[in-house]
């Protein structure tokens, strides 16, 4: 029943799953299928190793590029984006701060680049950039998803929201008091508040968090899928991940079992058992099944093949 396909009415599709299971391959196929059915679709890849440029045999890179009719692609290297962000802060610091102080804070800025949560927050920055331009495409398909940690922060209304609101309040209070401590202020308080670069940054973050929350927690707009292979370990990982996400109000609505062998080898029989287990365990969710392709998945025609299998289920 093609019209009922779950991909059509979701603006944002995210694929989770461990490395190598087939996220980039299946997200390319979903995007291809949507574009073939007249949806203007953007495929977003954050995977530097197995790029969509390689899959579509076309140079894509960090700027949106047309792949075929209605299909556009963009490759974003999260580490590079993160570096750009840090370098921007260092540049700003150099302009404002005295050399002595710059020395003191430089390390702290660098350190944040390597801090434990940095990569996840950098990925979140990359993903949420597209939330602000959602009218540009009918569908956005990501070969990744925000990390469990990020989703948890967003799902808890008290966490990020309260934190940023309190920072804003403290900043405003501080500026107010400072204003009244100034004998001859050069500007009105209102104008000072409007021009404050610190408040600008805080409001920008607040907006980012609010928009992301609105989109990621909205299951009418957003689809989270899990890709896994028919093996023992992935089933367990999937079970744990789904449980964790659903505790945070993120629903994984669909699973893709990828790389299924269908000869009558012992391996194939074992896989059949795992597939049954997956179907029982995740009975309430939509399950797609994809065969292991005999040849390397490479080029538009092989993606079209996978796409046709996906969209016929």
């Amino acid at each position: 029943m093609e019209e009922k396909n779950v991909f059509f009415d979701r603006k944002f599709v995210f694929l989770s799953g461990k490395g190598g299971v087939g996220k980039t391959t299946t997200s390319s196929s979903i995007a291809m299928g949507l574009s073939k059915r007249g949806h203007k679709t953007l495929l977003i890849s954050t995977d530097p190793s197995h790029s969509i440029g390689h899959i579509f045999e076309k140079e894509i890179g960090p700027k949106e590029r047309q792949i075929r009719e209605n299909l556009y692609g963009i490759e974003i290297n999260v580490k590079e984006e993160s570096r750009k962000y840090i370098d921007g802060i260092l540049k700003q610091a150099k302009e404002i701060l005295s050399p002595v102080i710059l020395e003191e804070v430089k390390d702290q800025i660098e350190l944040a680049y390597h801090s434990p949560g940095a990569e996840e927050l950098a990925l979140f920055d990359v993903i949420s950039r597209f939330f602000a331009v959602e009218e540009k495409y009918d569908n956005f398909v990501f070969d990744t998803a925000p990390s469990g940690y990020t989703l948890r922060l967003l799902a808890l209304p008290k966490a990020l929201n309260n934190w940023i609101n309190r920072l804003i309040k403290t900043r405003i209070n501080s500026m107010k008091v400072e204003y009244y401590a100034t004998r001859n202020p050069d500007k009105k308080l209102k104008q000072k508040l409007e021009e404050d670069p610190v408040l600008k940054i805080l409001y920008k973050r607040k907006e980012q968090f609010e928009l992301a929350r609105k989109i990621l927690l909205n299951s009418e707009k957003t689809l989270f899928m899990f890709v896994l292979n028919p093996e023992r370990l992935p089933i367990e990982i999937t079970r744990d991940s789904i449980k964790e996400l659903e505790e945070n109000k993120i629903k994984i609505e669909a699973l893709i079992i990828n790389k299924i062998t269908s000869d009558s080898s012992p391996r194939s029989e074992k896989e059949a058992e795992y597939i049954k287990e997956i179907e029982n365990e995740f009975a309430l969710r939509r399950i797609f099944k994809l065969p292991l392709m005999p040849e390397e998945v490479h080029g538009i025609s092989s993606i079209e093949k996978i796409s046709d299998i996906l969209f016929s289920q």
Partner: peptide, 19 residues
């Protein structure tokens, strides 16, 4: 600070008041 990746953006505006 688990969000230091975000708060470092504010450092340039407060560094001079660090001492």
């Amino acid at each position: 600070n688990p969000l230091s990746y975000y708060t470092i953006e504010l450092i340039p505006y407060f560094g001079n008041e660090l001492p």
